[in-house]
């Protein structure tokens, strides 16, 4: 079973996020990490590989520095990696990103493509669906459970009310929810081995990408402005002097929550 995991390098979740006031692009000079959701995707792929054999390939679009985080996925146990990196890709939106990823995927063989549910910086959660559409593959998102016999996939898709179980033929595209598994911690063998695993860097020319569909110029969306969310104000503290139940009820009523 050959699996491709798409991973994104994101700005550290704890880092203060800053937007460039003219392009409204995210300042990525702060510490970067592997998108935490994508660690679940990698883990899920490795578990399937342990059962069915095959290859796990990591695919990432990002700056050259993203190679460090791609290596983390390799240290966890993925076999090889492709990094799509080109200055022309900077500023791509969902459609641009999905186009580039899909074009790369078309040149690779796979039974399953696993995404994280969303990134922790861009957070649109739309890339996986867009890629599936471009590839013309079935797509299931927000999975909380995944099993496969090698030809079909049995999954639980999380909803607000619980989960819906699906069966799906392979090849397919999926995205996994946080907590679907406990991502493994890379061993020393994994870390040392990752340095030697193949990591191929491909640019726009190598993939024959249409420049008009990528980068800031090719973006179908345009960010006009952005502002910082107001800091959270201190909550209301209700000390229990015997009347707290009434006070809480009054508060909820005032907020039209009751």
């Amino acid at each position: 079973m050959n699996i491709i995991v798409c991973v994104k390098q994101v700005v550290d979740t704890e880092a203060e996020k800053r937007l460039d006031p003219t392009s409204w692009r995210l300042d990525r000079t702060v510490p970067n990490i592997l998108n935490p959701y994508d660690e679940y995707a990698v883990e899920e792929a490795l578990k399937l590989k342990e059962q069915h054999g095959g290859q796990v390939t990591v695919l990432c679009m990002g700056p050259e520095g993203a190679a460090d985080d791609v290596r983390k996925a390799l240290a966890m146990g993925a076999d090889d990696a492709v990094l799509i990196s080109d200055a022309a890709l900077a500023g791509s939106d969902v459609m641009g990103t999905a186009y580039a990823l899909a074009e790369a995927l078309k040149t690779m063989s796979y039974d399953l493509i696993i995404f994280g549910n969303r990134s922790t910086d861009g957070e649109t959660g739309c890339v996986p669906a867009a890629v599936a559409e471009l590839l013309g593959r079935p797509f299931l998102s927000t999975l909380s459970k995944m099993e496969s016999d090698g030809t079909t996939l049995k999954v639980h898709r999380e909803t607000d009310l619980g989960y819906v179980a699906y069966d799906c033929p392979l090849p397919a595209v999926v995205s996994v929810a946080k907590g679907i598994n406990e991502p493994r911690y890379p061993t020393m063998k994994g870390i040392l081995g990752a340095k030697k695993k193949p990591l191929e860097v491909k640019d726009v020319a190598a993939l024959g990408l249409d420049i008009s569909k990528i980068g800031l110029g090719g973006a179908k969306t345009k960010v006009l402005s952005a502002r910082t969310a107001p800091p959270r104000t201190a909550g209301t503290k209700i000390e229990d002097d015997g009347s707290s139940a009434q006070k809480i009820a009054d508060f909820l009523a005032a907020e039209k929550l009751l």
Partner: peptide, 8 residues
Amino acid sequence: LVMDLGEF
């Protein structure tokens, strides 16, 4: 446990 097995 940590470096050889990644189990902690």
